[in-house]
Design a protein around this nucleic acid. Structure first.
Lengths: 206, 206
DNA sequence: GTCTATATACGGATAGAC
DNA sequence: GTCTATCCGTATATAGAC
């Protein structure tokens, strides 16, 4: 019992350390020694728990992806909320998440592209975004307006681009704007209100 | 003379191969052996020309950054063109560039974050964007309108987010939308006209 | 479960012949 | 300039003691 508790907590420590190191360095540059050290345990123990660097990575990656998708699924399929409300919720949720973990999107996107494995199939294997009520709402909104209809993919790309990209490019943005971390976070806080407004303006434009 | 010609062409072949492999795998995962093979030469020769993997990388990276910035400097400081024209030119130029080299932004952004070197200082060491005529035009436009003034940084973030992020996230976008490479490129082609329109709509919104 | 010590593999870099 | 053969550091993974 005491062993199991220790075991669980050790496993968790390793995973937390792994998440940190993997996100900082990327998979290839991350060293299992560093992960072990950051977890306050020995290298051999890491392999005892997770068998290999690759296996450990797969677990972290999967959890990250789930975290990314977690929540958004319900938001997109909520039949009670308007398109505007969904947009606002998505933007707010992601900005909150990424303010805590700014390295998350770049890490996921980079490993998704470079890693030979088919992690991508796990992202959206049931195509839930494509079939979501959200997508239906976009199509309907386009039909109902006299304005030229907007491709739902453009709409979706716009929301996530405006929300996520500033975090991905934050080193450059902070450099250009002469911003420290706090300034940058304040800017992102502003965007919680601004992006939904902008999206609305884009939709109304002919 | 014949030697020098061969030398120059070999050096170029190595650089082209290096650019390709580095962009595909990232710095850490890229193997000099693979670069040599892709260049059709031997590993020893690579070190003969570039001394080390690190040195070769620095050269490739610097060239990529210059490519990224190349052109945009003149565009931003052109005193003859309007804000709308500049926006359209920037969007078109980047979409053209990234359609040819879709891995470029993710590679640059990832290495910028993970590589211990201070590459970033080279990006904008003279703060040319911040001091550009373009930035002045944004500030002026904000003043002249009755609409609430927009932070120039938000304006800039919006343009590059809407333009670049779709390429960064293209695997996910193609997965969600069920698009092949041609479909995706067609979508980006559409955005050349759409993004400037959207930016205009955003600006006019109170 | 956790450690120390070690086997093994891989990748960057060099020596030296041509 | 270009090659083959090889060295050597580093990083993953395992053996085996506690």
């Amino acid at each position: 019992m005491a062993k199991e508790t220790a075991s669980a907590s050790t496993e968790l420590k390793i995973k937390q350390a792994a998440r940190k190191i993997f996100m900082q360095k990327g998979y290839a540059a991350a060293r299992t020694r560093d992960i072990a050290e950051a977890a306050g345990i020995n290298l051999a123990l890491l392999n005892y728990y997770f068998r290999s660097k690759e296996k450990l990575f797969d677990i972290i990656m999967l959890e990250n992806l789930q975290q990314f998708i977690e929540g958004i699924k319900e938001i997109l399929n909520n039949r009670q909320t308007s398109l505007e409300q969904k947009t606002e919720t998505i933007v707010t949720n992601y900005i909150n998440l990424l303010t805590q973990q700014p390295d998350l999107p770049l890490f996921v996107l980079h490993e998704l592209r470079t890693h030979p494995k088919e992690i991508i199939s796990k992202i959206d294997r049931d195509k839930f975004i494509h079939r979501s009520y959200f997508m239906q709402q976009i199509k309907d909104a386009a039909k109902e307006r006299k304005a030229a209809s907007i491709n739902p993919l453009h709409f979706l790309m716009n929301i996530i681009s405006l929300t996520i990209f500033p975090f991905v490019a934050s080193p450059i943005i902070q450099n250009i704007g002469g911003l420290n971390q706090q300034d940058f976070n304040a800017l992102m806080e502003e965007r919680k209100k601004l992006i939904p407004k902008w999206i609305k303006a884009i939709m109304q434009k002919k």
